[in-house]
Design a protein around this nucleic acid. Structure first.
Lengths: 213, 213
DNA sequence: GTCTATAATTTGATAGAC
DNA sequence: GTCTATCAAATTATAGAC
């Protein structure tokens, strides 16, 4: 098993182990017996916590992962020296994680969605909500930086698409080259969106020193 | 079955049917019995043409699809009124296909790679080669348009990542919104890459009127 | 080249003791 | 809450007749 039985609750161990299995082998490529072995929980326990079976477990994995990545983005955005550079920082962080993990998929959500979007409406919907929450976070960051809302929404959407696409390529090529390039180009797009509307005064923002929160 | 037995060779029918099944249900979500039913070929026939089984069949599907998309890009690039707009045209075409197909995955390659990159080196490698061939095509288009090679390579990589990412999001959201946005932003990046080096004379190109070929 | 039959394994899911 | 035992069905792959 991957985790010590002293660690966290059984339910959490199941979710964490399933997350990693999905990132390695996808949704259909991961069996409940594998999840059982990786989490140290029996199949009976899995059904105890997730009566809806594999599909319900996957929904929980998606929701959990969506929250983690959203918080990660917010944290990086808050600490960025310069708003457009937050995107480069985000991709750089993903690149570091990717190498450490021997090029496992950095995120299970896009892969699951691709596999089952035509057969599982609950899973497709959970993935769609995850992407929308990321788009909302990126959009807020851009609007705070002075990008007009319509352009900010479009750019935020493209950002999430670039994240997913760079994940696909980096995993396939076993290289973080595309992640770095994507961060650079996304920052460039963000900078253009800000400077191309210099007559719009930046929205009142707390000074960086006071916005640690 | 999806295809009339009068159509094409058995081998081609197997590849076309498998391509569509993979786009609907992914690699692990598609069984040989389903491929048999969809292609009108028996499982015995499938093993006759692809002695390597499902994996060898998938390699052929990836190689075939890679060639089709590469030719599509080259064709769109050759006909574009303005080089940067070729990218917007490409995404617009993908958007049209997506809606017609009820939001099936527009391409099986990225999904397969994500599922099996950790378990099948032949499939990971086939997908990696496909992406590299697309990057090379986009890079050539950008260099021909006057973008310096280093920047062109980076932009071409980001283009392919945006394609894959936009496919993931559009399929998940059941909307072509992200495809349109991606085309617009990619064209913007390409335009910036050209105009940001105005001192470089554009490479000699045949006039559009004579380049119909 | 195509077909049927089948081997060997694994799957998701359930029942019920403890 | 956790466990073992087990179900019916589906999976990849192979063998061998035609």
């Amino acid at each position: 098993m991957l985790y010590d039985e002293a660690m966290a609750s059984t339910r959490d161990r199941i979710i964490v182990a399933t997350n990693e299995m999905f990132r390695r082998h996808g949704y259909n490529g991961t069996s409940l017996s594998q999840i059982s072995a990786a989490s140290g929980a029996t199949i009976g326990s899995i059904y105890h916590f997730f009566p809806g079976g594999k599909e319900a477990l996957a929904v929980s994995v998606i929701e959990t992962t969506a929250g983690v990545y959203r918080e990660l983005f917010d944290s990086i955005a808050a600490e960025a020296d310069d708003p457009p550079l937050a995107f480069a920082d985000f991709f750089a962080g993903a690149a570091a994680v990717l190498e450490e993990s021997d090029y496992i998929d950095p995120c299970p959500i896009g892969g699951i969605a691709r596999e089952v979007a035509s057969t599982s409406e609950p899973l497709r919907n959970a993935a769609a909500q995850a992407f929308l929450s990321w788009i909302a976070a990126a959009r807020k960051h851009l609007v705070d930086a002075g990008v007009p809302p319509p352009a900010a929404g479009e750019l935020a959407t493209v950002f999430v698409a670039m994240v997913e696409g760079a994940f696909v390529l980096s995993r396939t090529q076993r290289s973080d080259e595309v992640l770095i390039a994507a961060g650079k180009q996304m920052a460039e797009l963000a900078r253009q969106a800000v400077v191309s509307h210099p007559n719009l005064p930046p929205v009142s923002r707390p000074s960086r020193a006071g916005s640690t929160r």
